[in-house]
Simulated assay, not measured.
Amino acid sequence: MPVLIPTLVFRPVSTQLLVTDGVRSVGENIRDALRTHQDTKTLGCHVHEPIRPYWPEDAAAQSDRIFTGRYNGRRFALNVTGGTTLMALGARRAAAEHNVPLLYVDTDNGVIITLAPDGSVTGEREITVSVPTSTYLAAHSATVSAREPWGKAIERRESWLKPFLEAATVLGQAGGGSERLLDVIRPVCSGGAAGPAELPEVTTAEESLANRLQEFGMIEVARRGGSLQVQPKGDERIRQFLTGHWLELYVYRACLTSGLFDDVCLSVDIRRRTESGTVVNECDVLTTLRGRLAVISCKTARLDHKDENKGAVYELDSLLQAELMGLYARKVLVTNRLALRPPLRNRAGLSQIECIWGPHLPDVAQRIQSCLLPGRR
């Protein structure tokens, strides 16, 4: 992203990329990413022949050819972010000879630093450019597409989604208060138990939550002494919703309506080209903000078994390796559990995964945003 961001910010007539053999495909990815962005798809992008990464003379010579070539006499700026130190030294030498100013993208602090040809800092510019999810992923040799039924329904704005989105908001705003109710419903929805489900020693808040779901036409509720009997409706979408998809819908809607993000996507497949073929990863929610990506995994099942909490972490870890998705992708695990056991929190911490659980669900959008703000690594 530090290579792509200046082009999105300044929209130059042409971007000239100096690459090495090991990262030539990165230059091609940048070119693909520009084509996905409405404002940059007509801009030129040229990937030059690879140079040696530790020979500053190569970078100096190639930079000199660019400055004196087709665009001779035009205004240039040299972005020294992303290459090796010796490449930057060589390119800077050529820039000084041609009086070309420099740029450095400090994504950690969310600014583009501008420098004079002699290397002295002349100013900073805050990174405020909007980067769509498709553009971020294209820059990392990946594409994104909505999945059936939830992602496609959002994409097509289908009317049947409205009660599901509203019910998801009710459940999400309940924080961890939905945990017991949905835990007893789950086996019935998945066919592992005969209905109705029974919730003993029901609280007033749980009964109110069940009644709201009944109003949305998703369950039938009956009070039996101190217990609540709950029968899920037979519709497959309702059963999917109650067994977990409600949390994805809630997180998506909370992020979208908050206005805090550049882009928000629900229920998508990420396809990445590799030497051995195409790899497809399913993702619950994606958000972008100022050139950073958050991949959000939503879990409503119990996470207190070692295999389950290991799987929840591994799912994010396997997708978000730095060499695959860049240094500026963030991992977020969201659950409606009232509490997270220490083994899961420790495992997530070691993998730099941000955890958001039950009591924090009402503020989920703000917490995800905080992961993407400058200064967070």
Rank of each mutant, 00 (worst) to 15 (best):
6 P>N: 02
8 L>P: 06
12 P>C: 02
17 L>I: 15
20 T>S: 09
24 R>N: 03
27 G>M: 03
30 I>D: 06
41 K>C: 10
45 C>N: 05
47 V>F: 08
50 P>V: 00
52 R>T: 10
55 W>F: 13
55 W>Q: 15
61 A>H: 11
63 S>D: 08
67 F>H: 04
69 G>W: 01
74 R>L: 11
76 F>M: 12
79 N>L: 06
80 V>D: 01
84 T>E: 05
90 G>K: 00
98 H>M: 05
106 D>W: 01
107 T>F: 09
108 D>C: 06
118 D>V: 10
119 G>P: 10
125 R>H: 11
126 E>F: 08
130 S>C: 10
132 P>S: 01
132 P>C: 01
133 T>R: 06
137 L>W: 11
138 A>T: 12
139 A>S: 15
139 A>P: 02
140 H>Q: 13
161 L>S: 03
163 P>D: 00
175 G>S: 07
180 R>E: 11
181 L>W: 08
182 L>N: 00
187 P>M: 09
189 C>L: 03
201 E>H: 05
202 V>I: 13
210 A>W: 06
216 F>W: 03
217 G>M: 00
219 I>C: 01
221 V>K: 01
222 A>M: 12
223 R>M: 09
228 L>D: 00
230 V>S: 03
234 G>P: 02
237 R>N: 11
250 Y>C: 04
251 V>F: 03
251 V>C: 12
256 L>D: 08
259 G>E: 08
271 R>H: 10
272 R>D: 07
297 S>E: 15
302 R>Y: 09
309 N>K: 00
316 L>F: 01
318 S>G: 05
319 L>N: 04
320 L>T: 08
323 E>S: 14
323 E>P: 06
323 E>I: 08
323 E>K: 13
325 M>G: 01
336 N>R: 10
336 N>L: 02
339 A>L: 12
346 N>S: 13
355 C>S: 08
356 I>W: 05
357 W>F: 15
360 H>K: 12
361 L>W: 02
366 Q>M: 06
368 I>E: 07
369 Q>G: 07
